[in-house]
Computed example of a mutant assay.
Amino acid sequence: MILHHNGLIKLEYSPATDILQVNYPDLYSYQLTEVRHSLSIMVETIRNYDVKRLLLDASVTSIHITDEENSELNLNLARELSKTRLQKVARIHPLSPLRESIAQKNIEKIFHSGIVPYELKTFSHRTEALSWLLN
């Protein structure tokens, strides 16, 4: 069922599997305020529905912000997700090797910060990610 859809982000939840599927939004400087708000809606939805499994699909996300803005956005998201009861987060990596390299650096920063109580694993395909979330 679709819990939220605002043009930037769509939250699709399956109560049977307790998986929230989200396509990570495109990131443009002029939309950062709206993206932050959409991500806060996602976190609040995770909290309200007590979601334990999250699938973040960044495979086709377009990023047009600075690496610093991107890093800050991801660190804040991880910090907010750590305040929920999430247990597993599966992410589908971007198709661009350069974008994935930047994402991995951000993930390392997040793990070094010590704020992530949930499992996080990166996948190439949605089916692999869903399978891991269900196990």
Score class of each variant (00 low, 15 high):
T84R: 00
E119G: 15
I102D: 03
L98V: 11
L134D: 06
H125G: 02
K121A: 11
V35W: 01
I115M: 06
I110D: 06
S71T: 13
E128W: 03
E69K: 06
W132H: 06
N74E: 10
L73F: 05
L27K: 00
K121H: 14
L8A: 08
K52E: 15
V43R: 00
S82R: 04
T84L: 04
S124Q: 14
E108N: 13
Y30K: 09
N6P: 08
V89S: 03
A16E: 15
H112A: 15
S59C: 10
E100Y: 14
L32I: 06
S96D: 06
L120T: 14
I107G: 00
S131K: 15
L130T: 06
I110W: 03
L73G: 03
D18G: 01
L134R: 15
Y118H: 08
R47C: 01
I110L: 12
L98A: 06
E12G: 02
S124V: 12
L95N: 10
A16I: 14
S113D: 11
I41H: 01
L75N: 04
D57W: 10
A58D: 03
R47D: 04
V22A: 08
L77A: 07
D67C: 06
H4P: 12
S14I: 11
N70R: 10
A90K: 05
D18T: 03
F123C: 05
T33R: 12
R79L: 11
L86P: 03
E12N: 10
E12S: 09
A58I: 02
P25E: 02
P15C: 13
G7K: 11
Y118R: 05
S124C: 08
I2V: 14
R126V: 11
E34N: 12
R91Q: 09
D67A: 09
E108S: 11
I65H: 03
I107T: 09
S101H: 11
S96P: 01
I9V: 08
D18R: 03
Y49A: 13
